[in-house]
Amino acid sequence: MAAPAERATPEQLALRRADGESRTLAASLPRLVLEARRIAANVIHGLHGRRRAGSGESFWQYRRFASGEPAQNVDWRRSARDDHLYVREQEWEAAHTIWLWPDRSASMAFASRGMRDSKLERALIVTFALAELLVAGGERIGVPGLIPPSSSRNIIDKLAQAMLHDTAVRPSLPPAFVPSPLAEIVVIGDFWSPIGEIEAMLAGLSASGAHGLLLQVVDPAEESFPYSGRVEFVEPEAGSTITAGRAETWAGDYVTRLALHRDQIRAAAGRRGWMFSTHTTSRSAAELLLFLHASMTVNRAGRSTGIGAGA
């Protein structure tokens, strides 16, 4: 007679799910890395990093002298060549770090029928590609709790290997850490966490003066709630279930609550000077990468002139 099976604890169930997700990630990583490199190569063509004028030692460009500037700013040697006054600008060289956090929790594994990428796969593709793009522009990339800031040219391989060997239970939101005041942070996830937890995360990461961007990645089914009839929904983090007898009658309330949750995240981000945006996996990953790069450039420009990112 077989011995009765022991009921697993929530912690054991979480570890089993993490192990299964690690195996799935190991199988899909080669495709994700190749896709990230392809997208980064396409986007980086024609871009020239995020160089800008500021205090530094490397020459960047000459520009026309503006009326009202101190006379000592004039580069007289360059100005002597023609009838205009010129100022010699140096390239901005502050030591900045960009922290990237792709949510790798259980809820990110969801993909509805017909979607090539799960939310997790899309988040990792964009994280890898963004890291490649930023390192090419002279930035340092880190993942809190996983890898320290690095400007390695093989940053994608470092990220992939670190994630592959990370066996810890993965939280939805980044762990508490103290970024430098000049750091930028990009958090990519589905943000289905309670708004109180999201506000606490923002408060902790912003305490030092760091700023960043929250990107909500969702599946099309999570946008429109296309379900009808009797449907059992499973909460992927805890494994709890809820059954809808006529799921179509839930759609209106669902869409309303989704809009409210997003408004709350947007307001919380804006109060801290952060940006918030959404992305659906049915859209292009390259389009998202371009948006992120442009948004980070605008965000930094706003900070350097005293204009908050949420303005």
Rank of each mutant, 00 (worst) to 15 (best):
A3G: 15
A3P: 09
A5V: 15
T9P: 09
E11M: 10
E11Y: 06
Q12G: 01
L13Y: 00
R16K: 04
G20E: 13
T24V: 07
L25A: 13
S28F: 03
P30V: 06
E35Y: 03
A40R: 02
H45L: 12
H45D: 13
H48S: 15
R51V: 11
R52Q: 06
R52H: 04
R52N: 02
A53F: 09
A53H: 14
A53M: 13
G54Q: 13
S58M: 09
F59D: 10
Y62T: 00
Y62W: 06
R63E: 13
A66T: 13
P70E: 11
A71T: 12
A71N: 10
Q72P: 01
N73W: 12
V74H: 03
D75Y: 02
R77C: 04
R77P: 05
R78W: 09
R78A: 15
D82A: 04
D83L: 10
Y86C: 02
E89W: 07
E91D: 12
W92V: 01
E93W: 05
T97N: 11
T97G: 03
L100Q: 04
P102F: 08
S105G: 07
A106N: 07
A106Y: 01
S107F: 08
F110E: 01
A111T: 08
R113Q: 14
R113G: 09
S118G: 07
K119S: 02
L120R: 12
E121A: 10
R122C: 11
A123L: 05
L124C: 03
A129K: 02
E132D: 12
L133K: 00
L133Y: 00
G137Y: 03
E139F: 01
I141C: 06
I141Q: 10
G142S: 05
G145V: 01
P148Q: 05
P148K: 09
I155G: 11
I156P: 01
D157E: 15
D157L: 15
K158W: 01
A162Y: 04
A162W: 03
L164I: 11
T167G: 09
T167N: 14
A168I: 10
S172A: 14
L173W: 08
L173M: 09
P174R: 00
F177W: 12
V178D: 14
S180I: 00
P181S: 00
E184F: 10
G189N: 10
G189H: 09
F191M: 12
S193N: 15
S193C: 13
E197L: 04
I198F: 07
E199D: 13
G204L: 05
G209A: 05
G212K: 03
G212L: 10
Q216I: 07
Q216E: 12
V217R: 07
D219N: 04
P220S: 09
A221V: 04
E222C: 08
F225D: 07
S228M: 04
G229V: 03
E232T: 15
V234G: 00
P236Y: 01
S240T: 15
T241N: 12
T241Y: 07
T241C: 11
I242H: 10
T243R: 08
W250S: 09
A251R: 15
T256C: 02
L260A: 13
R262T: 08
I265T: 03
A267T: 14
A269M: 02
R271C: 03
R272A: 14
T278R: 11
S284L: 04
S284D: 12
A286C: 06
L289P: 03
L290D: 12
L290E: 15
L292N: 01
M296Y: 10
G302S: 04
S304F: 12
S304C: 08
A311I: 08
A311L: 12
